[in-house]
């Protein structure tokens, strides 16, 4: 959401993240044991980080408008269940992929529609969606497959193509597309405008409700691609446990990337770098032999540290704006 100019704060955040990622990469290279290959780390990075980055791109737009989507993990579950059911019915791969993307897209658009029509805060609607969509996925699986045992097995290799062979390519193509679109299109600017001031937006003749809706529609497209890569990477789709806590990873990456949680500021590049930073941190901890039990705590502490510092730095500026 930059359009040629980055705010000093965003520019600073991008530089910090870039430097952080480089430091982490160097640290990984040094802590790597004998026999590990560094190129391996880089090639595995694409498929592993793709779902978080892609879902993060969608979330960035949504958060820029001042809304939030807590239901993305459950949407991925529904998309995955639809995908698994169709595979179970022996549909060819392409229609299965299309159905997966379309499901996620339409549910996200549905979130936007509900927020628009019920005039409720996005956090409430999507918190409800978090529970509701997972329940729907479970019911759907029960209805579609007699004696459903709790997991859908995707055996044939051709169904794993987007998540395993093409994940990096899809990620790169989407990222380039997103950057170009962010740079030239007017819609991302409208999201920023809405996030900065809904009142000003309305006075300028823009319709806040359809702008917010457009963020959910565009976000849904990104989320659809993310869901496709996520569910085609795994062998067993378990609706009850799939993608638990995924929304936290994504929101963490987006905020780390410098997107203001209240809207009005943010960039796709920041989100991508933020997601990479969290991923490389986890990788480094694995290579450094830090117990996996510590990793979640360290990630949490890291997010708190970065955001806390950030908010503290903003504190004085906010007080001054208040007086103006």
């Amino acid at each position: 959401m930059t359009h040629g100019r980055l705010s000093p704060f965003l520019r600073q955040r991008l530089l910090v993240l870039l430097a952080g990622n480089l430091v982490l990469l160097i640290a990984i290279a040094f802590t790597m044991k004998q026999g590990g290959s560094f190129t391996d780390v880089l090639t595995r990075c694409g498929p592993n980080v793709a779902p978080v980055i892609l879902a993060g791109l969608g979330m960035t737009g949504i958060i820029c408008t001042g809304a939030i989507d807590l239901s993305i993990a459950s949407i991925i579950v529904v998309a995955g269940t639809v995908f698994g059911v169709l595979v179970d019915r022996q549909w060819p791969p392409l229609p299965c992929f299309a159905a997966c993307v379309a499901t996620a897209w339409s549910l996200s658009a549905c979130n936007g529609l509900l927020i628009r029509n019920l005039k409720m805060p996005a956090i409430i609607i999507t918190l409800a969606g978090l529970a509701l969509y997972r329940g729907l996925a479970l019911i759907l699986a029960d209805l579609a497959i007699p004696n459903f045992g709790g997991s859908l097995n995707i055996q044939h290799e051709s169904y794993h193509a987007p998540g395993k062979q093409f994940a990096s390519a899809i990620l790169l193509a989407t990222l380039v597309g997103a950057f170009v679109w962010e740079w030239f299109a007017s819609t991302p600017r409208r999201w920023l405008a809405l996030g900065s001031s809904e009142e000003a937006c309305r006075l300028a003749g823009l319709d806040p409700r359809s702008i917010r809706q457009s963020a959910f529609v565009v976000g849904g497209l990104f989320l659809g691609i993310a869901a496709l890569i996520y569910v085609t990477q795994i062998q067993f789709i378990e609706p009850a446990r799939l993608a638990l806590g995924f929304e936290l990873q994504v929101i963490g990456a987006v905020i780390l990337g410098g997107t203001n949680i209240f809207g009005g500021e943010g960039s796709y590049a920041g989100t991508a770098l933020g997601a990479l930073f969290l991923y490389f941190t986890a990788q480094w901890m694995t290579y450094a032999g830090i117990s996996p039990y510590f990793q979640e705590a360290i990630t949490g502490a890291l997010i708190i540290g970065v955001i806390g510092m950030d908010c503290a730095l903003h504190r004085n500026r906010k007080r001054l704006e208040e007086l103006a």
Binding site: I68, I123, L248, I251, G252, I255, I261, F262, Y293, F294, Q295, E296, A297, I298, T299, G300, A301, I303, I304, I307, G308, C311, A312, H314, R315, K318
Partner: peptide
């Protein structure tokens, strides 16, 4: 209160942190 972190973000991160500490 002191760092001016929005409540939802602050408690979302502490939710991850506290859960991580549980595993520790």
């Amino acid at each position: 209160a002191w760092l001016d972190v929005p409540p939802i973000i602050a408690t979302l991160s502490t939710m991850i942190l506290y859960r991580g500490l549980c595993f520790v």
